[in-house]
Every structure is written in C-alpha cells, then in structure tokens.
C-alpha cells in the first residue's frame, strides 16, 4: 500500500481489491480446467463447480472494477493516523506470531501482552511482566493440564521439562 501524504484514498484500494478477486477467479478457472470441468465417469468432475464459481467471481469483480475506474471519488480509505493505529496493533501481532515458530506460543503471547501494556497502556514494566507471566501460566494450566490440548512450545518449556 503506497501512502499519499494525508492518507490512503479509497479508489486505488478498491481497484486493487477488485483486481485481486479477479485474479483469484482466474487462478481457480485455470486450476479447474486442469482437473476437468465436464461430466466424468463418476458424475460432474471435480473442477466443474470451482470453474463456474471462478467465472462468476471474475464477472462480479470486473463489474466492481469498472465501477471503481469510472467513478472518480476523493473518498478516503483510511487516514494516515488511522493506518498508524492499525499498524500499532497489527505489526506486534504479526511479529509475535512469527516468534511463535521459534520460542513457542507461551513466550510469544506473554511478550505480546507485555508490549501492549507497556507501549499502549502505559503500565509499569513490573506490572506488565507480572501479568504476562501470569497469563502464560494460566493458559498453560487450563490447556495443557486440564484439557490436554498441546500448544506450540519452545526452548524455555524444554528447559522446564515439558
């Protein structure tokens, strides 16, 4: 998403979205043509349904695209301020999910909670870390011990013997 000074206008996003949907439809039609979309020896072939659905999707997004191209509005998609707010929530979440591959869910979750409390809530470090650890422990007890649901773990849990 490119950012113009005061925010993101709706029109380019609208066009990009319609194009992506059309591409999705095209991809579906392409793949369905590969596996066949006629009448096979065991009924309608696997590709029949996605093929026509893909065609309809391309048609519908074509119509949306035409509308977006023809109608020149100056409506905003979101202001820079709004996008910044969204990013402040979404980016730490993404990072925390990425970290889960390495350190497991518990540490990553505790980190996410602590980050939110300190950076967005203005809590003290002590309070934030204490709540983060408490949350991780509660999740562990409820899921792993009570309901036997195994969640991703990392080196820390290995160290503790799980």
């Amino acid at each position: 998403m490119s950012e113009v000074p005061r925010g993101l206008r709706a029109r380019p996003v609208e066009i990009a979205t319609a194009l992506s949907f059309a591409a999705l439809g095209g991809v579906a039609m392409f793949d369905s043509a590969r596996i066949g979309f006629g009448w096979g020896f065991d009924g309608p072939q696997s590709g029949t349904f996605p093929y026509w659905v893909g065609a309809l999707l391309m048609l519908a997004s074509g119509a949306v695209l035409a509308g977006a191209v023809l109608r020149r509005t100056r409506a905003m998609f979101a202001t820079n301020e709004q996008l910044a707010s969204v990013a402040r929530v979404f980016i730490p979440t993404t990072l925390s999910v990425a970290a889960m591959h390495l350190v497991g869910l518990y540490v990553a979750s505790a980190g996410l909670l602590a980050w939110f409390m300190i950076r967005l809530g203005g809590y003290s470090w002590l309070a934030a870390i204490a709540s983060a650890v408490a949350t991780a422990v509660i999740i562990f007890v409820v899921f792993e011990l009570w309901f036997f649901v195994s969640l991703p773990k990392g080196p820390l849990e290995d160290l503790l013997g799980y």
């Binding site: 996410l112 409390m117 809530g121």
Partner: peptide, 11 residues
C-alpha cells in the same frame, strides 16, 4: 482496559 483485553483477544 484496551491495552490488556486486546492482546488477550489476539492470543
């Protein structure tokens, strides 16, 4: 407060 409930929901 948001800073606590939002990450909990995300988790």
């Amino acid at each position: 407060p948001f800073a606590i409930i939002a990450p909990l929901i995300l988790i």
